[in-house]
Design a protein around this nucleic acid. Structure first.
Length: 272
DNA sequence: CAGGTCTCCTGCTAGC
DNA sequence: TGCTAGCAGGAGACCT
């Protein structure tokens, strides 16, 4: 599932193909991708908008057009494929962007969970992006920031790490890895963490995500950044998807539990 | 406000 | 071998 490193890898690949190119037309084959929006307006407004840049905020892609931002969230299995304009439409391709009348950028999403929003630039503060917390590398991310955010959180730290209004970009895979490296039990209540543990979470978040970006993301199940390009970070995972295998540090068997409805992998000996 | 539950969706797989 | 129930999960809606 695309988390911050995967989205960042996708962003870089898209930018190299699309920077400066123009969306001549959009074909929306599945209206729910633009949930709550009038697709006829979108079809008109996006016409002839140039892709000036592609940014990332948390797990969101932000296409910087002339008058709009096109926000795209891949959720579980969303991905972009790039085709010659006249190639046949394949199953699961939900939105087609005509690029310079020459190429076709296609949003493909088997499970149809992903979302897009076309937002006027002046309305960006009313968008989903406005509710996001700090990027992992933000200088403001400190133990005191987390202390304040966690002070009323009785939920397990595993669950709270996934809360995008506090730190952005962490999903289920990296949350498990961050807690393993921080030697923190995923069941521990967020509000009970001390400064040392909070600092450890901050340090390991940056380290885990940096490493994963360097490796082009983690490919388990279906993620690829562009067609035929898989990530390599799966070989760096200590606990995620390693149920019943031995902990690489202490040899104890890795446990899988369900915490907050999410599959959670951890080493009960290393993580107290 | 905090937190629990449900919903969306389809492909894969464990188990019979 | 073939079938099917159950599982996978990010984020927002809705309820208590």
């Amino acid at each position: 599932m695309p988390e911050l490193p995967e989205v960042e890898t996708v962003r870089r690949a898209l930018l190299s193909k699309l920077k400066g190119k123009t969306i001549k037309e959009i074909t929306i084959l599945h209206n729910n991708v633009f949930e709550g929006q009038d697709v006829s307006i979108i079809k008109n407004e996006i016409k002839d908008q140039t892709i000036n840049d592609i940014l990332r905020r948390g797990k969101w892609l932000e296409f910087v057009l002339d008058d709009y931002y096109l926000l795209s969230h891949l959720r579980m299995e969303g991905k972009y494929v790039y085709r010659k304009i006249d190639e046949e439409i394949e199953k699961h391709q939900l939105v087609l962007f005509n690029i310079n009348n020459e190429f076709s950028l296609r949003y493909r999403d088997v499970r149809k969970f992903g979302k897009m929003y076309l937002i006027k630039k002046e309305d960006i503060n009313k968008s989903s992006l406005s509710k996001l917390g700090l990027e992992p590398w933000d200088k403001k991310l400190s133990p005191s920031y987390l202390k304040e955010k966690y002070k009323n959180k009785s939920l397990p730290i595993k669950t709270v790490l996934l809360d995008q209004s506090i730190i952005v970009g962490i999903g289920n895979i990296y949350a498990d890895e961050i807690l393993f490296l921080s030697k923190i039990n995923p069941y521990k209540k967020a509000k009970d963490l001390n400064n040392k543990e909070l600092q450890s979470i901050i340090d390991n978040t940056k380290q885990v995500l940096d490493k994963a970006i360097e490796e082009g993301g983690t490919t388990i199940r279906s993620y690829t950044s562009e067609e035929g390009v898989e990530g390599h970070n799966q070989s760096n995972l200590y606990v995620h998807q390693r149920k019943d295998e031995k902990c690489l540090v202490c040899g104890h068997v890795i446990i899988k539990d369900k915490i907050g409805g999410r599959g959670t992998y951890y080493c009960p000996k290393c993580q107290k």
